[in-house]
Computed example of a mutant assay.
Amino acid sequence: MRFQAAEPMSDLLPPTLQFEGTEEGYDNVRYTRCNNNPSQTAVAAHLAALEGTEAALPVASGMAAISSTLLALLEPGAHILIVRGPYGGTHDLVASLLKKWGVTSSAVSPEDGPEQWEALLQPGKTRLFYAEAISNPLCEVYDLAGIAKFAREHKLLSVIDATFASPVNLQPAKLGFDITLHSATKYLNGHSDLIAGVVLGGQELIETIRVTANVLGPAIDPHSCFLLSRGLRTLGLRVEQQNRNALALAQFLSEAGPKVAAVHYPGLKSSKHHKRAAELFTNGGCGGVFSFELAGGVDAAEAFLKRLQLPLVAPSLGGVESLVTRPATTSHAGLTAKERAAAGISDGLIRVAVGVEATGDLLDDFSQALAAVPGAA
């Protein structure tokens, strides 16, 4: 039987967005790749309201947010200050593509302050100070308020990747940061079924970055906007439980005895970053990521990971399920062994990104996995 449509196919398909404006210029065309689809603008407004910024630009991934921002705000020959051992993708961007473009960088440590930062400035070249809310994977906390203040005083742009904190625990705009970045794949979405990112800040800066993003092409599709909007509705509930789970597990491991060599989580009172974290983060919530090292090194780490039953051994974070990984083989595999050592990332370091499972169930699972690791009781 010959197929015959009941009505013209054009009536069955969603129409291309009709352009009704009078403003000229490519970026004013109503077109999904130009990041002005109604779904894109709706989720952008929601994100800006959460962060307390004038505007937001959702894009196709966290790295799309980072790369679009840095490519838009820097020029050949520019210099930036950047936190030590940033996220692996950020490191690769700065150390490879931007370096080829003539951009240089100077790393700062959590212990550094204005005196050390000022010594690294290159007059006429330094344009930007790049920070992270909580470092990955050692969970270090920098003097974020001091960085924003220093940037203002020296006429630098201040940019922060706030993925690990989420808007529930930190709103960098209130500290004075010009640009906030998130991998929306993580906490903002929270269900491990979406890849997205977002850039947030003042209207003028966001428009500058949007023009560059439109050229690069990392537009987020309308359905992903819907998924992100859905995830945002439970953000507060999820992050509060993840804060609780991470603190409980970090406390358990810090008290577990000689099998555990170190635990890195600013929520612990024993952490050298605790005081700063308590001052910066809402209600002391330090996020759902922590890391730790076993006394037995890589072999002990692998034995522990294989014994766990609840968490998946996989990269990423911020979802409803718990994940564990060794950063030396995932997020920081792009660094040389020497670079990882300089950043304090041992090959046996385990990063834990907790989900929203029952705290007691996670504690029981970590307890039995640790008991199976060879070593002193």
Rank of each mutant, 00 (worst) to 15 (best):
A6K: 15
E7F: 11
L12E: 04
E20N: 12
T22D: 11
E23T: 12
V29L: 13
N35A: 11
N36P: 03
N37Q: 08
N37R: 07
P38F: 05
Q40E: 15
A45F: 09
A48R: 04
A49K: 14
G52A: 12
G52K: 10
A55C: 02
P58C: 06
S61M: 09
A65D: 05
L70C: 07
L70S: 02
L71A: 12
A78S: 15
A78R: 01
I80W: 03
L81M: 10
G88D: 07
D92Q: 14
S96V: 14
L97A: 15
L97R: 15
L98M: 12
K99R: 15
S106L: 04
S109L: 11
S109D: 08
P110N: 09
W117R: 10
G124Y: 02
Y130S: 01
A133K: 00
A133D: 02
Y142K: 07
L144P: 00
K149V: 11
R152T: 13
R152M: 07
R152E: 12
S158R: 04
A173D: 03
L175I: 13
F177G: 00
L181R: 01
L181V: 04
H182C: 05
A184M: 04
Y187L: 11
H191S: 14
H191Y: 11
L194Q: 06
L194H: 08
A196H: 04
G197K: 08
G197S: 11
V198P: 01
G201M: 03
G202I: 07
G202Q: 14
Q203Y: 04
E204M: 13
E204I: 12
R210P: 08
V211D: 02
T212Q: 12
D221K: 13
P222C: 06
H223F: 08
L227V: 06
R230S: 09
G231E: 03
R233P: 08
L235N: 13
G236I: 02
R238G: 02
R238V: 02
V239D: 02
Q251P: 00
S254K: 01
K259R: 15
G267H: 01
S271V: 14
S271C: 14
S271R: 14
K272C: 12
R276I: 15
A277H: 10
A277D: 12
A278C: 14
A278T: 11
L280D: 02
G284C: 03
S291D: 13
A300I: 07
E302L: 14
A303C: 15
K306L: 06
L310E: 05
A314L: 12
L317I: 07
E321S: 11
E321N: 10
S322L: 06
S322A: 15
R326Q: 15
P327H: 06
T329G: 05
T330P: 02
T330I: 03
S331D: 00
H332A: 02
G334H: 00
L335R: 06
K338P: 00
R340Y: 06
A342R: 11
I350H: 00
V354K: 00
G355N: 06
G355Q: 03
A358C: 11
D361S: 15
L363R: 03
S367R: 09
L370P: 01
A372K: 13
P374N: 06
G375E: 05
A376K: 13
